[in-house]
């Protein structure tokens, strides 16, 4: 945490976030290489396709365990309230950076809360659909094919989620990334993006 800044994520939260993030990247890159033979070189860099086949499910376990931690760390703050619904109704204004029309958000805005729940759901179903793919000889061909479709579609959803998450957390809103690196944000950032949280935190 930096001096004069407001603490946004504590040490434990940051560690869990990066464990989940790195395991997700590993899952995404090996998964892409499994899905697209033109990307086989990614797995070659990771020690070959056979090694990637061993790594992927175990990275999935790390990811899932991390997600469980995330769930319990953040679930209390993630229930939608009236203000969040107003925020979501004004999502177009948010996308246009139309400050006047964006209802004030608390520590997490409505979009972040929706994303939290979507991510938890994606994680659960990715894990459930991934288990038959881990042990294909145990499951019949029909179930395996269904799970390959499901796992792919869910992974695509998670990939699209990642694009938006990284974009919003970095170049779209400068000053955000620090919250996940050293744990704090500037007062100006807090007042702009999460005014209700700022008031509560700064005691105004």
């Amino acid at each position: 945490m930096r001096k004069n800044e407001l603490e946004r994520f504590n040490y434990g939260q940051r560690v869990v976030h990066w464990v989940v993030a790195l395991s997700f990247l590993l899952l995404m890159f090996t998964g892409l290489a499994f899905s697209y033979p033109s990307l086989t070189w990614i797995n070659t860099l990771l020690g070959g396709g056979a090694a990637a086949r061993v790594i992927h499910p175990w990275a999935g376990i790390v990811f899932s365990v991390g997600l469980v931690f995330m769930f319990f760390m953040w679930v209390k703050s993630m229930f939608l309230n009236k203000g969040d619904r107003e925020w979501l109704a004004a999502i177009k204004a948010y996308a246009r950076h139309d400050r006047e029309r964006i209802p004030p958000a608390g520590k997490y805005n409505g979009g972040q809360k929706i994303f939290f729940w979507l991510q938890i759901l994606l994680g659960i179903f990715l894990l459930l659909s991934g288990i038959p793919l881990w042990f294909p000889e145990v499951y019949g061909s029909g179930l395996l094919v269904t799970m390959r479709f499901l796992h792919f579609v869910l992974a695509l959803g998670a990939g699209l989620f990642l694009i938006i998450h990284v974009y919003l957390g970095t170049i779209a809103y400068p000053g955000t990334l620090g919250a996940m690196l050293w744990g704090s944000v500037t007062r100006g950032w807090a007042r702009l993006h999460h005014p209700l949280w700022y008031k509560e935190k700064a005691g105004h």
């Binding site: 004069n4 779209a172 500037t186 007042r191 702009l192």
Partner: peptide
């Protein structure tokens, strides 16, 4: 990008 107008906060 959407940044605070000034960072003195």
């Amino acid at each position: 990008p959407e940044s605070p107008d000034s960072d003195n906060g």
